[in-house]
């Protein structure tokens, strides 16, 4: 399946293959670093808020479009909060992956990821964001990824373009 996960409302229509999640409309608390999802209730976060409905979609999608404002070269708070809360999809145990130590994944599909990074982004921020996504690719099971840096007012247009490409 396909997933569009955004930190802001986008005027698009979901279809049979594509799930759209607007994180700004959900109640998602910060991860508290308790390791409960690894060592107490494996695969389930102990905080039972809206995040528990989101990470199963992240796991089962093989095509994802992530939309986030950029702050200090990383995801801004709304998106980053969800990224942190998605760690139940991983195990505590460590493996060697592409020559580095990383966590084993649970039943997480390999993904073709597109990341729309929006805002007034400097060249320095772009470099940091590219490094972040390169790291995320190892930990979030991206088999390929593409980053689009765009201004705020172009978000909806770009999302629709990508959605059209997916539907071809």
């Amino acid at each position: 399946m396909n997933l569009i996960m955004s930190d802001r409302d986008i005027n698009i229509v979901e279809n049979r293959n594509t799930k759209y999640i607007d994180l700004s409309k959900l109640k998602i608390n910060n991860c508290i670093g308790c390791f409960g999802c690894w060592t107490k209730t494996p695969g389930k976060c102990v905080i039972r808020d809206d995040a528990v409905k989101v990470y199963p979609y992240i796991a089962k999608s093989d095509k994802v479009l992530y939309v986030s404002r950029v702050k200090y070269g990383g995801y801004d708070s709304v998106f980053k909060t969800m990224v942190e809360r998605a760690i139940p999809v991983q195990q505590a145990f460590i493996r060697i992956h592409n020559g580095e130590t990383h966590h084993f994944q649970r039943n997480v599909k390999e993904k073709d990821a597109t990341i729309i990074a929006y805002g007034n982004i400097s060249d320095g921020e772009k470099k940091v964001f590219e490094s972040l996504i390169s790291r995320n690719a190892q930990n979030m099971n991206f088999k390929s990824y593409k980053i689009l840096f765009i201004e705020d007012n172009m978000v909806e247009t770009e999302v629709k373009k990508i959605l059209e490409q997916w539907e071809k």
């Binding site: 494996p42 695969g43 389930k44 796991a59 139940p88 145990f93 649970r106 039943n107």
Partner: peptide, 9 residues
């Protein structure tokens, strides 16, 4: 149990 592949059951 910790190695379960299940996510939210």
């Amino acid at each position: 149990q910790m190695q379960t592949m299940e996510i939210e059951g």
